[in-house]
Design a protein around this nucleic acid. Structure first.
Lengths: 201, 201
DNA sequence: ACCTGAACACCGTTCAAGT
DNA sequence: ACCTGAACACCGTTCAAGT
């Protein structure tokens, strides 16, 4: 199976939609897709691989902090570009060749930071879990699209049932700068990694 | 709509399956479910709410670190109990009453830790993103079920394409203690929160 | 008030048939 | 070698009908 044959790049944005819709998108009968993929799951794996290929490889000459940060920012950008496809990453094991190609520079950066070899994989999982979790929460709606309206919803509950919400008050309804919040979390993780490297080094 | 009427607790484990299957599970025609829920999405929201109700409320008398840790451990336990339903949390806005009831004690703990009011929500998102991201990665397969086999898969790529993997070698194929790794991440987050509270005075 | 059964417009997938 | 069309066993949902 060649996979590259049909102009399936057009379907990158969708995913999780039907074989019939994907087929229509590339001007093919849905059944023709089975010439390239064994199943819908196979097609979805390939789609996820294509999305991963758009995560930029960090410049090997840059310091390790920048390499980790660039990779994280790149992944978040890709999530916004393919909000339907990107969340599939959380439910697919990281065995695709494309996933390993994204992870490898992270391993390299963590080693350069001084993280001991036996702990590199754990740190990569912590780092990627933050990046993926944050990006998926953004694009698939957990963070809400502007958390406006939490106040109204709060009023439906009995007063006093959410004491901390009540104490915080209107500060909860302020708009959020998601990019700034992502950068903050990123900076904190990088500081933790640096500290881990210093301790071990 | 009463929702509680039918014995729908039996369906807690499934979710993401069909209305027909859920109906069969509770001994009802699928169409009868529309007497309780306006749509499948509605039913899924209710199911997520029920799952959230099983996340234990932390003991208000405990120190704030323990309250955050207990809530996080409880959420992870619930994820393992309902691996099919739990991942829905990442794609649903946190507006369900049950979600706010889980979040409220976290807000309270963060305030007691000394986090300034304007930053409490951001820290709660960072904390919950780690907990949800980790738990969902575990139960929906991103971490792989035992990462055995990465070596074989690596050999399919050209040698030298994954230099960091090559340098780390067999340490990548060791079994992982997920609970210990979760606890480590948790401890690090709590340390960061403590530091944030200390800085703010 | 609560449930059923048939029906509608969809799914993923198989398979025999076309060129 | 590559694609099609009909068909199968499913979906969520509507609606008229039953008790």
């Amino acid at each position: 199976m060649d996979h590259g044959g049909c102009g399936l790049a057009a379907a990158l944005g969708l995913a999780a939609v039907s074989m019939r819709a994907i087929g229509a998108e590339v001007g093919l009968t849905p059944m023709a897709l089975y010439g390239y993929f064994a199943s819908k799951d196979d097609l979805l794996d390939w789609l996820v691989g294509r999305v991963l290929r758009e995560v930029p490889r960090p410049d090997p000459g840059a310091p390790w902090q920048e390499r980790l940060a660039e990779s994280a920012r790149g992944a978040r950008t890709v999530a916004h570009r393919y909000p339907r496809t990107f969340p599939l990453l959380l439910s697919r094991p990281v065995v695709l060749a494309e996933a390993m190609r994204v992870v490898d520079p992270l391993y390299g950066a963590l080693m350069e930071a001084g993280v001991p070899g036996g702990r590199v994989a754990a740190w990569e999982r912590m780092f990627s879990t933050f990046v993926l979790g944050f990006a998926v929460s953004e694009v698939s709606g957990r963070f809400g699209e502007g958390n406006l309206g939490t106040r109204e919803r709060r009023e439906r509950l009995e007063p006093g049932e959410l004491p901390a919400h009540d104490r915080l008050g209107e500060v909860l309804d302020l708009p959020v700068d998601w990019t700034a919040e992502f950068e903050e979390g990123l900076a904190r993780l990088l500081a933790m990694i640096k500290e881990e490297g210093r301790r071990a080094g």
